[in-house]
Amino acid sequence: MLRALPPSCGPVRLVAVDGHAGSGKTTFAAALAGELGGVPVLHLDDLASHDAFFDWTQRLTDQVLTPLAHGRTARYAPYDWHRAAFPREPGATKTLPPAPVVLIEGVGAGRRALRPWLACVLWVDMAARDAWRRGRERDGEDLAEFWERWTGAETAHFAEDPSHSSANYLVRQGELGFQVRTGPAGDR
């Protein structure tokens, strides 16, 4: 279904995997990338930072979207969450080729500013409180303070720029793995 979509970013079909932190976006994106033959995945955690959880749109546009739109390989410096800094060393960049399908996963991947570049939005459908509980269990007590800051920022982000209602497909994780069905935007 995704390969049949028209290109949305130059020659690329850019597919967003959005949802609450802890909902399973990274796991789903990895499974989907594998099902699609190993397509590239951009993790928005590489562009966000401790100081700017959601202030990465310009960096994404400059370092990733513009090169892909011109059929060129994107190069970006991934944020180091342990050092709380972007790398300064030469060669500390990641590359993202202009493949026919590229996945972009992370909270806010389906945001309003990115939708003109996107072929479709997949929303990993899980209640925020359940997703956040899973994320806290995954990350442990060492990151409890981070999660307090994060949940407030994520709540504010989705209040201002909800992407769930723009999703073409909803993804749910169950006993049999992930199930995908048409989402709110796909019903129009």
Rank of each mutant, 00 (worst) to 15 (best):
P40W: 01
E160G: 14
R115L: 11
A113P: 10
P78E: 08
H157W: 14
R72P: 04
Y79P: 02
T27K: 01
D46P: 01
A74V: 10
G174N: 13
A127Y: 10
L32T: 02
V107W: 08
G177H: 12
G108C: 10
H20C: 05
A113L: 14
T66M: 07
A127V: 12
P100E: 13
P100C: 04
A31F: 02
T155V: 09
L60F: 15
T66Q: 09
T27S: 03
G37P: 00
A48W: 07
D62H: 09
P87Y: 09
A21Q: 02
A77K: 12
E35L: 03
G186H: 05
F178T: 10
R172M: 06
D18K: 05
G37N: 00
Y79G: 02
E175C: 06
L47R: 02
V39P: 01
A128L: 13
A131R: 09
D46T: 04
V107Y: 07
W123Q: 11
G38N: 01
P40F: 00
V12H: 03
P116Y: 06
A30G: 03
F53M: 04
C9R: 01
D51I: 00
T155W: 08
A131E: 08
V15Q: 03
G38A: 00
A131F: 12
D18A: 06
D187I: 07
P11N: 04
R13P: 00
Q173T: 07
A159R: 15
H20P: 03
F53A: 02
T93P: 00
D80C: 04
P7E: 01
A128H: 14
G71F: 14
V124N: 13
G71K: 11
A21C: 04
W150I: 12
G38H: 02
T93I: 05
T27R: 01
D62L: 10
A52Q: 11
A131P: 12
D55S: 14
G38I: 01
S49T: 03
R75C: 13
V124W: 11
E89Q: 10
A52C: 11
G152N: 10
R111W: 06
P87W: 07
A48Y: 13
V39T: 01
A156P: 05
A127L: 14
L47V: 03
R13A: 03
W150M: 14
E137F: 10
P184H: 15
E105S: 11
P7W: 01
V41A: 02
H50F: 07
P78G: 05
S49V: 03
L143I: 05
G174S: 12
P98H: 08
T93N: 07
